[in-house]
Amino acid sequence: MEVSINKTEDKTLVKVNGRIDTTTAESFNEAIAPLMAPEAGAIEIDCSELDYTSSQGLRIFLMLQKAVSANKGSLVLTNMQAPVKEVFDITGFSSIIKII
């Protein structure tokens, strides 16, 4: 699991590679912790290389979403692979996190 964060003028571009599961969830949490700060602004997470997420991963996405909402920023997940998208759909996370 790898996370790269690029700040541009108007938004923060994040790319997540690999799997978020029991062993990598904590490091994923640490990697995206800066995005929960008030100055993060608009965040776009490219999920094209995200192969799998467990419920721990969902929980971290949820926490990020809550932080972003509290900071009046925005969060959008893009290019999600079908199996991952399915997890978001089944759990109803698609209704609280914007996925395009």
Binding site: L58, D89, I90, T91, G92, F93, S94, S95, I96
Partner: peptide
């Protein structure tokens, strides 16, 4: 229908 997991909203 998925609705939403419990404990979120």
């Amino acid at each position: 229908k998925p609705n939403l997991a419990l404990g979120l909203i």
